[in-house]
């Protein structure tokens, strides 16, 4: 069988599908000062999993606000700087109008995923932290 660390090099998806891979990648991102990219990516996935039913509405709204406040609102933050202005406006509108679709963060997640795939992920595969692990 292929060792996990070789699978991690196959695709970002393989890396993010493995607990050890996530842990190592997050350690790397933390060193680079951009662990928020990964946290945001998982927060978007977690939010989408929350079912929009009556008993969940308060939680969903609170969570959407928390994600917005922590990652999107702060224009200096690494996540906010990588999300397109139109995408940020869309999220802001949804949060302010309290119309929170499960897919509200999907576009932002896609944009952050592209940033990770184009920048952080290739750098990780060349990093000391990954090479030492292998």
């Amino acid at each position: 069988p292929t060792p996990p660390y070789l699978r991690w090099a196959g695709s970002l998806h393989s890396l993010l599908d493995d607990q050890d891979g996530i842990h190592l990648f997050r350690t790397f991102l933390k060193q680079e000062g951009c662990a928020d990219l990964l946290d945001f990516w998982f927060a978007c996935s977690g939010f989408r999993k929350l079912e929009p039913c009556e008993s969940n509405e308060e939680k969903r709204l609170k969570l959407a606000k928390a994600i917005y406040k922590k990652y999107v609102l702060d224009g200096q933050g690494i996540v906010s700087r990588q999300i397109k202005p139109a995408t940020k406006s869309f999220i802001k509108d949804c949060v302010l109008k309290q119309l929170i679709d499960p897919a509200v963060f999907d576009q932002a997640q896609t944009e952050i995923q592209s940033t990770i795939e184009e920048n952080s992920y290739p750098l990780f595969l060349k990093s000391d932290i990954y090479l030492e692990y292998t």
């Binding site: 996990p4 993010l16 599908d17 493995d18 607990q19 050890d20 996530i22 946290d39 998982f42 927060a43 978007c44 996935s45 977690g46 939010f47 999993k49 929350l50 939680k59 609170k62 969570l63 606000k65 928390a66 994600i67 406040k69 922590k70």
Partner: peptide, 20 residues
């Protein structure tokens, strides 16, 4: 603030793979 952070952490953890 704490409960917001807890909610966020719970959300992030819920999206991570559970088993290896």
């Amino acid at each position: 603030i704490d409960s917001e952070d807890d909610l966020l952490q719970e959300c992030i953890s819920s999206a991570m793979p559970k088993k290896k």
